[in-house]
Simulated assay, not measured.
Amino acid sequence: MEIKVKLTFGDVFRYNLYVGYKSIFSKVIVLIGLAVLGYIVYKFSVADGPILDVISRNIIAIIVMFLALCSKFIKIWKITAMQATSPIFQKTSTYKFAPDSIYLELDDQSDTISWTIYQQIKETNNDFRFFVDAVQAQIVPKHDMTTEQIENLRKFIEQAVPKEKYILKG
């Protein structure tokens, strides 16, 4: 089965968000940010003076909330923007799935990859992610695939990879 893939900014951004917020530390920081946001909303709701007074009394909490909720998101956005200039995002990749391997072709480069190299294969609502390690993965977006190709790819994965190494939606 052959699939031609052109990654979009959204494909890469979704993946980078997944990687960026995967750790427990990142999740704790987001929870702290949400708790501080709740505190700030409460302070604004019970305030009886001018809004600038409420802001000035809670400026540290507002800064902490902004850093906790927005700084990593902005950093991931910048990383994705830099990645979007690389050739892999400018050109179309071709994947040829076979029972024993995957043939990958990008521009004038090609490689045959054994299914055994993947530590995990994960299907999301938008793509298939073939993880080589905890952070690096090949992304095969579903927007470039027909329903039949998605079903066939699931069958290839189920046949080629042990059940504990994949998570599929269908």
Rank of each mutant, 00 (worst) to 15 (best):
I3R: 04
K4F: 11
K6I: 05
L7D: 09
F9C: 04
F9P: 12
D11I: 10
F13N: 04
R14M: 01
I24W: 15
I24K: 14
S26T: 11
G33T: 14
G33Y: 15
V36K: 07
L37A: 09
I40A: 05
V41L: 06
V41G: 10
K43P: 03
K43Y: 13
D48Q: 06
D48M: 00
G49P: 10
G49H: 09
P50C: 01
L52G: 00
I55H: 05
I62C: 03
V64A: 02
M65R: 02
L69E: 10
K72P: 07
K72V: 11
F73V: 12
I74D: 06
T80I: 08
Q83Y: 15
T85Q: 09
T85D: 12
P87G: 00
P87F: 02
I88P: 14
T94Q: 07
K96Y: 09
P99S: 02
P99L: 00
D100V: 05
I102Y: 10
Y103P: 03
Y103V: 08
Y103T: 06
L104N: 05
E105P: 13
L106F: 09
L106Y: 05
D107Q: 06
D108S: 12
Q109W: 13
S110Q: 13
D111E: 15
T112K: 14
I113N: 03
Q119N: 12
Q119D: 12
I121C: 04
K122M: 08
D127S: 05
D127W: 10
R129V: 02
F131E: 01
V132D: 03
V135E: 10
V135F: 13
V135D: 09
A137Q: 12
A137Y: 11
I139N: 03
K142D: 07
M145D: 05
T146N: 10
T146E: 12
T147E: 15
E148Q: 12
E148W: 05
E151Q: 11
N152P: 04
N152I: 04
R154S: 03
K155Y: 10
F156I: 05
F156G: 00
F156K: 01
I157D: 01
P162T: 03
E164F: 15
Y166E: 04
